[in-house]
Design a protein around this nucleic acid. Sequence first.
DNA 1: CTAATCCCGAGTAAACCCATAGGGATTACG
DNA 2: CGTAATCCCTATGGGTTTACTCGGGATTAG
Lengths: 139, 139
Amino acid sequence: MRISTRGKYGVRAMFDLAMRYGQGPIPLKTIAERQEISEHYLEQLMGNLRRAGLVNSVRGAQGGYELAFTPGEIKIGQIIRVLEGPIAPVECVEDGADPACERFDSCATRLLWERLRDSMTEVLDSTTLADLCEEAANL
Amino acid sequence: MRISTRGKYGVRAMFDLAMRYGQGPIPLKTIAERQEISEHYLEQLMGNLRRAGLVNSVRGAQGGYELAFTPGEIKIGQIIRVLEGPIAPVECVEDGADPACERFDSCATRLLWERLRDSMTEVLDSTTLADLCEEAANL
DNA sequence: CTAATCCCGAGTAAACCCATAGGGATTACG
DNA sequence: CGTAATCCCTATGGGTTTACTCGGGATTAG
């Protein structure tokens, strides 16, 4: 029941960018050092986030990454979905999964997994990067 | 963000036992066939559940497994913890994890993971096998 | 005695995770 | 215009986990 380092690192990196929102592009190297994440590995994650439209990149010297939206507009759930895939404890309760479940009594356990999925989604989609920044300020 | 087949199969098998609670021991083979789970694989899972005290086993012919408590006394969270480990999206918010987090601003993300853990725990520990049986009856 | 059953440990193929390596493209700045 | 800083891309590899399979031993009802 763990998320992988992808989601963990991704949220950390995005939080790092959120804390410096509006200060121009932040180089990957800086984020990686501050967050103690392998640079090359983080690069792959940032690539995914960029292609998903959550960050913009600026190439060349003095370049780096910046959020594509304000911290208040980016939900943690979006980051997780990009880096970890759909938020669903089992495949058959993924959003848009085919509803044909040939198993008869699995339906009972399915309701359980749906409730679990919903409660996870609720937490992850009701928290934005701005919320994390605010919480960080109160520590 | 998936549970493995261990948790999935385990819940299915325990649900199967709950639906037949009080009818004497159910052989593994029967459960495996009904739930379409590899027999040898399920055997390993049942071993874990037995050692955790959630099921009793009866050896020899006419033997099998039965719940060690009434369906209403067994929470899904207990099954998941036996087969999947602690319910925690990241290691540092495991119950009883050392509170020494040398990372400074990870604290902000930590609050998030704690909220996620709590919402997952809430769902899994507020549902019992009896709840699943009841839901199955209403389908 | 025998068949049914649980019990146990080893082995294994595939997938996934977490990187690492090396080079190419772009651009600010002197 | 050259150079260093930076993003971009693909490939590779070791380690771990997953989801089994296999083979045999122990126990017990009938």
